[in-house]
């Protein structure tokens, strides 16, 4: 059984070494796709894998620069910390709290 996003408060995604630097990975939690990024300072950020652009699409294949991503389809700049789309575009993507414990990357869904 795959865990449902609303039913659990945290899940283990993978071990830290399985996250390449500045390249996104996709995880499926229940019905939700989550894009997870490892920045060059070895922080892990997780956002919903749903482009805030009205036309939608994924985010995981974005170019990562510090704690920002440039979305792969429309080149919108998005802050991974807040999920906020940077000017002159606007919008917000849902963010998730992530913690690294004992080399395990844990995603909090609530």
């Amino acid at each position: 059984m795959t865990p449902q996003l609303n039913a659990v408060s945290s899940v283990v995604l993978d071990t830290l070494d399985r996250f390449p630097s500045r390249i996104g990975r996709v995880f499926i939690v229940g019905d939700t796709e989550i894009a997870v990024f490892r920045t060059s300072d070895d922080e892990i950020y997780a956002v919903e894998n749903l482009n805030p652009h009205p036309k939608g699409g994924p985010l995981a294949e974005a170019i990562v620069s510090e704690h920002y991503i440039y979305d792969p389809l429309y080149d919108w700049k998005i802050d991974l910390k807040s999920g906020l789309v940077q000017k002159p575009d606007s919008g917000q993507v849902r963010t998730f709290r992530v913690e690294i414990a004992d080399n395990q990357v844990i995603l909090f869904t609530k």
Partner: peptide, 8 residues
């Protein structure tokens, strides 16, 4: 491939 997380 999409990763499949495990419940704690």
């Amino acid at each position: 491939e999409a990763g499949k997380p495990t419940v704690i």
